[in-house]
Each structure stands twice: as structure tokens, then as C-alpha cells.
Amino acid sequence: MKEEIFISGRNIPHIDPHLAIWEFPISLYLFLGGLSAGILLFSAFTHLLNKDEELKGASKWAPLIVPFALAIGLFALIIDLGNPFYSWKLYTTIRLESPMSWGAWVLLIVTPLSILWIFSDLRKLFPKLNYTKLPFLFKVEDFCVKYKKQMALALIPLTIILGIYTGILLSAFNARPLWNNAILGPLFLVSGLSTAAATIILFAKSAHERHLFSKIDVLLIVIELGLIIHLIMGYYAGNEMQVEAVKILVGGDLTTLFFGFFVALGLLLPLVLEVFELMGFKVPVVVPAILIIVSGLIFRVLMVEAGQITRILY
């Protein structure tokens, strides 16, 4: 038996008895970052494959929410800082060893790019828009239309980095055994793509587009389930601290949230519903799509919280 206590009466807020430095805003930021990355990636691909008109939901409508999602995500990130008014100091240096640093830089590039990306089609989507009072916007629009292909080519690597970054931000901390799992980056990327596909289903303008993204989503959920098995196996194959850490998800306090709400209600149920819909059964597509989106957020809240409860034992 081993028991350790602080006899000097240490009880620091947000540190003891376990860390709670990163709370809901960080989870929301990771969720919105992954969602935005996924939508932009799908949108860029539809443009490069010349399917803009065929897949209007993916190419034009869904990206409209991205600048707002990124703005809310960044706002959440900034209010979670101890020194929000000094957040610009993130941009005084680039530190490749620090995921927080290169993630901030990628966001700095992707956020304006997402605005330019939707700007090229904005007047087609909203014909009443008129820039006559701000004529320079016509030039911006011309620029966006002219360089749309180049933007799409840039968005593909940038959004993949952004999607993976949301996971690597956590997995880079070896002091938190539950986070310190290399599969977390790919898992967050796939989860982000899956929530993006679900969002595009909500924006789809034709049955063809809805079915295509349902198929993509089915594939992504299957990959995600595979990665989750990989994740859990990784803990059990790990050292004592990781075996101890995974108990929180398997049999511990967060088991219901993880297996019940995330895996069962958020992945398996929508998977079955989407397969049924593709087989021709009448399923309201909103249901699986909303389940996937909500479970994506639950997953991030869960991982951010659970990781901070686990620690290196000594």
C-alpha cells in the first residue's frame, strides 16, 4: 500500500486535488477547430474536383459557418487564458516544439483564409448583397475567384494540420498519461471530419449530396471506432500509469459518458441510422447528424477533463 498526502495543507484552486486548468472553453475550441478544419477540407476537395455546383452544401453553404465557428473558438481560447489581453504574444515567436505555438500560427492563417474562401461565392448565395458603397470589396471578390484553386490547394494541408493539432495539443503532455497517446491526433482529426460531414448533411441541397456525405460519414465513423479500439488497447499495452489512467474511461467515473453517450449514442446509433437511410429506410437525416455533432463536443469535453485527472505516479 502506498498513500501520499500533502501535510502542509496544500489546496491550490484548479490544481488540487487534480488539475482543472483547462475547462469547457478549451473543449469547445478543440471541437470548433476540428469541425471547421473538416468543413474547409471537404469544401476544398469539392472545388478541386469541380463538383462545386453538384455539391453546393459542401462547397458553398457549410463553409459559411466556418469563420463564425473559428471566431467563437478563438474567443473561447482567449477567455480561458490567464492574461487574455496579452494573447498577441503568441505571435511574437514560433516554437515548433510547442503544439500551442504552431497551432496558434495555423489558426492565424486559416481564419482569414476561411473568410476569403466564402467571399468568392457570397454574392451568388445572397444576390441582394451589394458592395457599391464599398467598391474595394469587388476587387477582393475578383481576387478570391481568381485564386480559388490556389486557396483550395493551401487549405488541404493547413486544415489537416489544424485537425490533427487539436489532438496533438493534448497528446504532447507526457505528464498526463491519458493524453499521452499518439493515436489522439489522428482520432481528433477523424472525429473532426466526421462532425464536418454531419454538418454538411444538414446543409446538403440535394438527396445525392446527402447520400454521398452519409456514405463518407459512415466510413469515417468506422475508422473512428477502429481508432478508439486502438486508443484503449494502447493504454492497456502501456505502463502502469496508463493502465491506471484508462480506468477512468473503463469502469471509472466517466465510463457512462464515454461508452454510453460518446461511443453508443454518438457513434454506433448514428452509424446504424445512416446505414438504414442509405438502404432506403425513411430516417430523418437530422437525427444522426445532430447526434454526431453533439457527441463530437462531448468527446472533447470528456478527454480534456479526464486527462487532467490522470497523472504520473511517483
Binding site: 486548468i21 480561458d80 490567464g82 494573447s87 505528464a175
Partner: peptide
């Protein structure tokens, strides 16, 4: 320091 907490987590 901007108080991001990355060092606390690490």
C-alpha cells in the same frame, strides 16, 4: 506569459 496553462499541464 499569457497564462495559457500549457506548462501547468506539462
Amino acid at each position: 506569459c499569457i497564462g495559457c496553462g500549457a506548462c501547468i499541464e506539462s
